[in-house]
Amino acid sequence: MNHPELVAEITAAFQDEPYPGDLNIVYDNSGFHLECIEIREAFKGHLWQEVPDDVLSAERTGLSFMSKEGFKYYLPAFMCSLLRDSSVVEEGISMVVQLLTLPTEIDIAVMAEKIQRYEVASKLPDVDLNEVLQNQLNYTNKSINTFIARAIQFTPAQGRAIYHFLVYARDEAGDEFLSTEADLAIQRYWFQFE
């Protein structure tokens, strides 16, 4: 699938998605979360089809601060922008792919190994490995819940468009790491939309 066809598929799949409302773009509207304030102000009032590419480029990490409704609404803007602007593709697609990848418990095992190596290397006797691992487990559970809350919102057509975007990222990435990450996202969840 080429760029124009993929952009057309994404546009068709998300064209009727309702705007989430100014106060439902980000997950924290308390006024104390600076990144959420910045993202909300940058995207407020913009239909996803009309967000300027310079805003999407400047706020590349914006999706990670969005509510599940904001994520669903603005994801197609990020995907289409990345397909149009090859200068930010690798870094931008990497962020989107990461947010579209279902976390697994294996991440905890990798983290535990890194912590143990760090503990041995630095010989810090006051590091409580069990406490650190429990904190990581709590974070991982939260990450899984966040992913699921976001992913179950998508219609079959939207899921298929996301799947095709990930296939494009996997197949067209000039970077082996990004290709592997996109394939992982597909294998963990998005394969079902093939």
Rank of each mutant, 00 (worst) to 15 (best):
A77E: 06
F78G: 06
M79I: 02
L82G: 04
L83T: 06
L83D: 05
R84H: 10
D85E: 10
V89W: 15
S94E: 12
M95L: 05
V96F: 03
Q98D: 11
Q98M: 06
P103T: 01
P103I: 02
E105Q: 12
I106A: 12
D107R: 09
V110E: 12
E113N: 08
I115T: 11
Q116P: 01
Q116A: 13
R117F: 03
Y118T: 13
Y118Q: 14
E119F: 09
V120E: 15
A121I: 00
S122I: 04
K123G: 06
P125N: 11
D126M: 06
V127Y: 13
L129H: 14
N130Q: 15
N130F: 05
E131L: 12
V132G: 07
Q134H: 07
Q134Y: 02
N135L: 08
N135R: 14
Q136P: 00
T140R: 11
T140H: 07
N141Q: 15
K142H: 02
S143C: 10
S143F: 01
I144P: 00
I144F: 01
I144T: 09
N145T: 11
N145M: 03
T146P: 00
A149L: 10
R150W: 01
Q153I: 04
Q153M: 15
Q153C: 09
A157M: 00
Q158Y: 03
Q158H: 02
I162Q: 00
I162G: 02
F165Q: 02
L166V: 05
V167C: 14
V167A: 11
Y168Q: 05
R170S: 07
D171H: 03
D171V: 02
E172T: 05
A173Q: 04
G174Q: 10
G174N: 15
D175P: 00
E176N: 10
E176Q: 10
F177A: 11
L178I: 07
S179D: 10
E181T: 03
E181A: 12
A182E: 09
A185C: 06
I186W: 03
